[in-house]
Write a protein that binds this DNA or RNA. Structure first.
Length: 219
DNA sequence: CCCTGATTCGC
DNA sequence: GCGAATCAGG
């Protein structure tokens, strides 16, 4: 599969969106995870938190004892030069919370109010007691509803996860089996048994169960 | 084991 | 330029 401009564009978007190389790879299709990573680097895309990095400052020298059976074809060019990485921006605002002090409650002060018809105290918007700062909100619950914890969702699927649907799409608790697959199949052993069945002779077939949601829409 | 990204190097 | 193989941390 070639890297067309379009696919490169998708790659960039996904990469910058934080998707993993694997996710990007099988979203694009036709490329491996390695291909995606390789391309990303060639494109000069920003590297992202990698497990195997950020290790430094410890010069561990093991002078001897590491022949490794010489699996390399060429002379292993060790000694990665500790070339000074680009100077980290080091943007640490060091600003003591001088600006984020909570708004102090308005001090009691002389106020002039007019009395409206019916004796109501007139109140202008400026007279409104200052609203306390809104509490910080979470966009996402810190903890998943226990009902969905442990459930296998669409994004959890992989080549070794059983993709047998449990429930129906659209239902709140729709999820996937999530068990280990029967190697070579998209389902676990149990669900392979459900998925792959020989046809019964016509006379032995049961009528199909009623379709959910009232069946196909007729226009 | 599984996952991740980085790097190398033959093509 | 490409990406499999390899490395290495979580």
């Amino acid at each position: 599969m070639a890297w067309t401009d379009e696919r490169i564009d998708q790659l960039k978007k996904m990469w910058e969106k934080g998707m993993t190389a694997s996710q990007i790879a099988d979203e694009l299709g036709g490329v491996s995870r390695n291909a995606v990573i390789g391309k990303a680097h060639r494109l000069g895309l920003k590297s992202r938190p990698s497990p195997v990095k950020a290790k430094d400052s410890k010069a561990k020298k093991k002078p001897a004892a590491k022949p490794k059976a010489a699996p390399k074809k060429t002379a292993p060019k060790k000694a990665a030069p500790p070339a000074a990485r680009s100077p980290e921006p080091q943007e640490k605002p060091a600003e003591a919370g001088s600006t984020e002090t909570a708004t102090p409650p308005a001090p009691p002060q002389q106020q002039y109010r007019s009395i409206g018809p019916g004796g109501f105290t007139r109140q202008s918007p400026a007279d409104q007691a200052p609203l306390p700062p809104a509490p910080p909100r979470r966009l996402v619950p810190a903890k998943l509803d226990p009902e969905y914890e442990e459930k296998t969702g669409l994004l959890d699927l992989s080549e070794r996860i059983c993709k047998w649907p449990m429930g129906h799409p659209g239902e709140p608790d729709f999820h996937f089996c999530g068990g280990p697959v029967n190697p070579g199949f998209p389902y676990c052993v149990e669900h392979c048994g459900r998925a792959y069945q020989a046809q019964l002779p016509r006379k032995d077939r049961r009528p199909p169960p009623p379709l959910p949601f009232g069946g196909p829409r007729v226009r």
